[in-house]
Amino acid sequence: MIRFAVVDDHMIVHDGLQAMASRADDLEFVGAAETPDDALALLEETRPDVLVLDLRLNGESSTELCATVRRRHPDVIVLVFSAYGNTELLTQAIRAGAAGYVLKDTNTGRMPEILRELVRAGSYFDPRIAGSLLLTSISNPSEPVSFSERELAIIRLIARGANNHDIGEALNVSPHTVKFHVSTMFKRHGVHRRAELVRLAMDLQLLD
């Protein structure tokens, strides 16, 4: 029997994973939490085998919580459950002690086998991003994960609601140049919306 708990600030995720467990004879849903403090209390109370942890809780990165869980409960396997297929965030999760990383668009029907593989092998990383991380690490073994100063300036203005024209005026470049930079960041960081760039920069603690 694999006993697992969930930390996510969306009740629909709690309900979905609980329903999934009810259909599997070897899975037991032992509880859910929405905040870091509640998550730590839940772990003390339930002692699960696996903690399914949302990468973002109420707009904040949960990598620090992941590290705390691994430090206080080394027997608990942390599976990060993320909406972002991004190698930078995967790297952060691994460094914080996560043994797995799965995207939220994964079919719920596959989650039981993912949990089994996680416990059986000791790790599970979504192949859609694990391969990209491996290729990046091989191609650029010493290249730090970062945004350029120009890219960060664009992201800061996006966060304030500026469009390409406004950003161009503020940075003294053309709207076409702004669009080029944004498109380049989309491709490099595996995101599709400007809000995701802002969230990524926040997760990497690059925004004030």
Rank of each mutant, 00 (worst) to 15 (best):
S132Q: 13
E60A: 15
G100K: 07
A170S: 05
V76N: 08
D166G: 04
G131Q: 06
D38V: 10
D75Q: 11
K179L: 02
R110T: 03
G190Y: 06
V7I: 13
H165I: 08
T63E: 10
T35G: 07
L171M: 10
G59D: 09
L115M: 12
V145K: 13
G168N: 00
V30M: 11
R199P: 01
P112Q: 00
A98K: 13
V76F: 08
L171D: 03
N163G: 08
R110N: 07
V7H: 08
N107D: 12
G122S: 01
A99H: 13
F125G: 07
T46E: 15
G97W: 09
M1Q: 07
S142N: 10
A67Y: 09
A32G: 12
T63W: 08
R199W: 01
K187L: 14
E149T: 13
H14M: 00
R116M: 07
A121R: 15
A162W: 05
L55F: 07
E196Q: 15
I94N: 02
H165K: 13
V80C: 09
H73M: 13
Y101V: 05
N140G: 04
S123T: 14
L40E: 14
G161M: 10
G31H: 05
R72A: 11
L51K: 08
K179G: 05
I155A: 01
N140I: 02
A99Y: 03
D9H: 12
R156C: 00
D54Q: 05
N86W: 10
N140S: 12
G190L: 12
R47G: 04
R188I: 13
D15F: 10
Y124L: 00
I12S: 04
L55V: 02
E149P: 00
L171H: 00
E117F: 03
D49R: 14
T68Y: 04
L43F: 13
Y124N: 04
E45K: 15
H73N: 08
V145C: 02
A67R: 15
Y84K: 12
F81K: 06
V178P: 02
F29W: 14
A93N: 11
A121C: 13
A32Q: 06
K104G: 12
I129H: 03
E64Y: 06
S148F: 05
E64H: 14
Y124D: 07
L27F: 06
V7S: 15
F180C: 00
L51V: 05
K104F: 04
L152G: 11
A33F: 01
L42Y: 09
R71D: 15
V198Y: 01
R128M: 03
L133D: 04
P48K: 06
R160I: 01
L115R: 06
E60I: 09
V182E: 03
H181L: 00
V102H: 01
G100C: 07
T35L: 10
V13C: 07
A19T: 13
R199Q: 15
R128K: 01
S132W: 03
P144T: 14
A170M: 00
H14V: 06
V50Y: 11
T108Q: 14
V173H: 01
N172V: 02
L89T: 14
Q205L: 05
L42A: 10
T108W: 05
D75A: 04
I114P: 09
D126A: 05
T108A: 08
I155W: 05
T108Y: 02
P74K: 06
E117G: 01
G122P: 10
I2S: 02
L103M: 12
S142L: 07
V102W: 01
H14T: 14
G109S: 10
D54L: 12
I129S: 05
V30P: 12
V80D: 10
H165M: 08
I155M: 03
